[in-house]
Design a protein around this nucleic acid. Sequence first.
DNA 1: CATGAATGAGGGTTCATTCAT
DNA 2: CATGAATGAACCCTCATTCAT
Lengths: 213, 213, 213, 213
Amino acid sequence: MEYNAKQLQIIQVAERLFAGKGFSGTSIRDIAHEADINVSMISYYFGSKEKLIEALFEVRFVESAERMENIVSNEDLSPLQKIYILIDGVIDRLLGNQCFHNIMLREQLSGEERTQVISDLIYQLKLKNWEGINSILREGQIKGHFREGIDVSLLSATLYGTVNHVLTTQSFYRKINNLESLGQEEFDKTLKKQLSKHLKSIFKATVAYETIE
Amino acid sequence: MEYNAKQLQIIQVAERLFAGKGFSGTSIRDIAHEADINVSMISYYFGSKEKLIEALFEVRFVESAERMENIVSNEDLSPLQKIYILIDGVIDRLLGNQCFHNIMLREQLSGEERTQVISDLIYQLKLKNWEGINSILREGQIKGHFREGIDVSLLSATLYGTVNHVLTTQSFYRKINNLESLGQEEFDKTLKKQLSKHLKSIFKATVAYETIE
Amino acid sequence: MEYNAKQLQIIQVAERLFAGKGFSGTSIRDIAHEADINVSMISYYFGSKEKLIEALFEVRFVESAERMENIVSNEDLSPLQKIYILIDGVIDRLLGNQCFHNIMLREQLSGEERTQVISDLIYQLKLKNWEGINSILREGQIKGHFREGIDVSLLSATLYGTVNHVLTTQSFYRKINNLESLGQEEFDKTLKKQLSKHLKSIFKATVAYETIE
Amino acid sequence: MEYNAKQLQIIQVAERLFAGKGFSGTSIRDIAHEADINVSMISYYFGSKEKLIEALFEVRFVESAERMENIVSNEDLSPLQKIYILIDGVIDRLLGNQCFHNIMLREQLSGEERTQVISDLIYQLKLKNWEGINSILREGQIKGHFREGIDVSLLSATLYGTVNHVLTTQSFYRKINNLESLGQEEFDKTLKKQLSKHLKSIFKATVAYETIE
DNA sequence: CATGAATGAGGGTTCATTCAT
DNA sequence: CATGAATGAACCCTCATTCAT
């Protein structure tokens, strides 16, 4: 599915508003007003409000579909290096697309199953992510670098859950760590660095034998 | 603030529906229908839909306000034992009140700051939780059991984030781990056990010196 | 119909609120709140909101029913003196019960004919007033003091209309005449004096032969 | 502000209903039903019920803004002739737009100050009317036709108050003067004639020296 | 191909009144 | 005799969508 410039602009505005106020809490009038278009354009271009959020998911998924693949298939890296790159990749992706991941979190919290399309896309992404981590861990186990008996699901949960939680509670994090004076960009940089170190440390301790460096 | 039986019933229904469809996505007619009351009762009992969700937060917060206190102040436990009890407490609390924590996650994702009341309550709860973990860690450091330089915020994020993420992606977790045949109760039990083991392992590796058992 | 102290208190509050916001614009909750009673008391004491305004009219009418009679039947006064006393009486009555006359004006403007009871009371009052003026004028004509061919209805309209209009546009009157610094009481006194002089002058010029003093 | 045909139709219906039942007493459903439109059209066209009445005031004010000007600035007329034309103009205007003036009277009786817009418009109209009368009277005084020491406010009150009062109590007027058999049009004609004569007589006696014809 | 006028359904809230106590 | 809990109707307004142009 290809979208023209106007459609992409609408999607972008919708993404910001859905992130801030939720799907139900955002009216097409809000979107139309912010995007400076007529309200009927949303139905015209996308068919309905629901189709709009589907389009949003499609666009963002296509963008991020290729990343995991590149990491796993790179043969020059050790399993632990791959894990490290994976962690940084997740951090970058989630913090770099905060609006979209906010929406995705909301959708996962929703029992409404807005549409099968979105559910399927989220499922596919999760599966791909899980398989990526899994294949790296298996490779590490085969190479004798990693322990046996690692719970991939829970380790994934720790990776994504920690980043999401920090993303969600940014303002609290700033307050508690006296980082309120920092600009958004600088704060993001600091956050990424600390998150990266923290998660790498957890992963290493969890998967790698002590002797591995 | 005290609520009578009918009010508590409404709150309970609202909690379930807000968790499933979000605040904006749930109409007071939905709530009234499910609770088998007249639509005007919500305004009558709570003043407005917004006041209803505030009441919900107040009730749930009062319930869970005392838990952390009991753990921290118990003098018979070692710091690591306290951490372990804390972890199990968090798991129990979040998985035992899935609807409410779903709503709380939604509210944290929301940029709307529905009301100052809710924001304040969430902030207070987070602060209390943070202080609880912090004081246990400090105690462990003073006693020489725990490492220095622990990032309390990120460790909290890992604890809450991991549990929340699992809570949010339960169905995926079941599917990927072939646990779809289990009943909800049995699954919850399994999940709690595995989460507990996983998080305790992470915390131990992160905070404790290797020699500590 | 007799009303107890509580009922009279309710009537008094209702009068003030009806005057300020109109009958439809005033809710029984407003009244109950201001009168510091339960909402159900209005239905309980009066039967309904409509019956309440009827009661208000009854009470105020009984109060003012006797005045005109006294003026007309006083044999010691000349017709013109009677007219003068009548004018001052109308001014005093309308300005002394501004709330009630506000409500009465509203009811007369209304095409709803809220109830036959109110319509009848207003009709009776108007008729009594008209007859009072008429009989004084007739007396003056018989005595040769007053001209023939006086339009009693229009003269009444000028009397009541002028006072009502001033009553209605008090704030404009204050502004245009630079009386904004005066207290309400002092302003009322000034207003009454000027209205009295103005209307007496009009009446004299309209009804009396020039030579009459 | 320009209004299209449909908006003007809605305004016209609203005017009639507001006059009959008051603003609070008229629901947008009433208006929609009478105007044969969907209820949502009122919000759609005017924004809200309050904005609708504002629009009504704007339209009617624009219509009557020019009249006074024409009278005052006409140099071929004597001051007394101008007064006479003014009186007939007021009578025509008030009796010709009974619905609107009913609403305006209601608004002036209201302590709610529905919106600043309406209050301002009414104030401007009153001021313009006052200034018109004032300038004619001053002209008459300068030319030596009129007395000194005329209270413009009270004279205005008598003019507008008398006409309004007759307008308000038409049915009583008919009854008392045995004019119940007349059709509305014929009655209006009779009323205008009598009102005109009555008010001109009052004004002449009040402002002009006896010798002036 | 794009628009904005128009719609019916449903949103949250307030209403006057009733009824069991 | 007096109360407050509870009700269903109606309130104004916003919603996503449609349709003629």
